[in-house]
């Protein structure tokens, strides 16, 4: 009896502590919490992983900081919730996180059936192959009969099956539960080919005994557009997420960088003026201050800068821009104009 009453009290006490305001607009929630709650991965090099000082770093993490900068003018007003692949959507649906920025592939079923909205694509990924150089293979189409190492239970497995069947090729699958096991098996020569998302190939190559003896084949066999996700039904919040990314793209296109953003404020270019809020009232339309984009760029830089800082050629990952270049550089990143 007493035990039960005690537990009821304890339970309700905890609940009431945590109970915040009921579902208002996400932006109002975020403002009253004074921070953006951002769901990230449990560790994916270059996208979201804690560094040795415990700070989150990566492309997805910088995006969250950009959102915080846009809203509060302070990139540190963001809290990160590491989520496993399985719990990520529930966490967003239940309101545990405000935005899910966790290398999540935009697919039709996820966009439509889960009550979620994909906003933009901040990284175009795709599944690729890595092989030993001494195999003398230069194209994935020459891989017939190869044994292929990959993770179990992911779309990578299915993509491989689709690709080989479509091209009438034989293959033997060697699957493991964890990425580390896959790399170790490939390194030990248990299979000829290692396949996963291309950004992952670059990261895992660092763990090979002789990275120089392996090449990444040029073929991309699947589309993996990765981007931030929000709950359905809050268009204002969706707009904020979308335009945070677009502002970073536009900044790169216009040559506005973290270093020169203050000088650029006095630029005569009307596009720059609209971006940085010296002309027009664009911030107000999404419920933010007029200097929202200025704050983003001041805090994390433009898209190219965050790319270079986290995954670019000077990082250990050394990923080239490829399809993630600006549209006028032959890539797919296209920021709609601010006007």
């Amino acid at each position: 009896m007493k035990r039960r009453i005690l537990s009821v009290i304890a339970g309700t006490a905890v609940l009431s502590l945590a109970a915040g305001a009921a579902s208002a607009a996400t932006l109002d929630d975020v403002k009253s919490k004074d921070s953006v709650q951002c769901g990230v991965s449990q560790g994916l090099p270059g996208f979201s992983n804690p560094d040795q000082d415990g700070n989150w770093t990566g492309l997805d993490v910088d995006f969250c900081r950009a959102v915080a900068a846009a809203i509060f003018g302070d990139p540190s007003k963001v809290k990160f919730t590491p989520l496993s692949a399985k719990e990520r959507f529930t966490a967003l649906q239940s309101g545990d996180v405000d935005v899910l920025s966790r290398n999540t592939t935009w697919t039709m079923s996820r966009d439509t059936a889960l009550g979620l909205n994909f906003s933009v694509v901040n990284y175009y990924d795709g599944q690729g192959f890595m092989v030993r150089k001494d195999l003398g293979v230069n194209s994935a189409l020459e891989l017939s009969g190869a044994s292929i190492c990959t993770n179990t239970g992911t779309t990578t497995e299915l993509n491989v099956a689709d690709y080989f069947r479509a091209n009438n090729m034989e293959y033997e699958l060697v699957a493991f539960e964890k990425a580390d096991e896959v790399v170790a098996a490939y390194d030990a020569g248990r299979c000829d080919v290692y396949t996963t998302d291309q950004s992952g190939l670059y990261a895992q190559r660092l763990k090979l005994t002789d990275p120089g003896a392996h090449i990444v084949l040029p073929e991309i066999i699947s589309k993996e557009p990765l981007g931030p996700v929000v709950r359905q039904g809050d268009d204002q919040w969706l707009n904020i997420i979308k335009w945070t990314h677009f502002a970073m793209l536009n900044a790169e296109e216009l040559g506005v960088t973290q270093a020169n953003v203050d000088e650029m404020k006095s630029s005569d270019n009307p596009s720059v003026k609209r971006l940085l809020g010296t002309e027009g009232e664009f911030g107000g339309a999404i419920g933010l201050g007029n200097d929202w984009a200025y704050n983003i760029i001041k805090a994390v830089g433009n898209y190219g800068e965050t790319f270079d800082r986290n995954v670019g050629p000077d990082t250990p990952l050394a990923i080239s821009r490829g399809v993630n270049a600006q549209w006028n550089q032959g890539g797919l990143q296209y920021g709609p104009p601010i006007r």
Partner: peptide
Amino acid sequence: VLIIGLFDFLGQIQSSFTDPTWASPVQL
């Protein structure tokens, strides 16, 4: 508890494997 996104001792070690700064064959 790692599977629900809490980093216990082992989870913290595994999460450090993702840091490209230290990535090497002997890291694991």
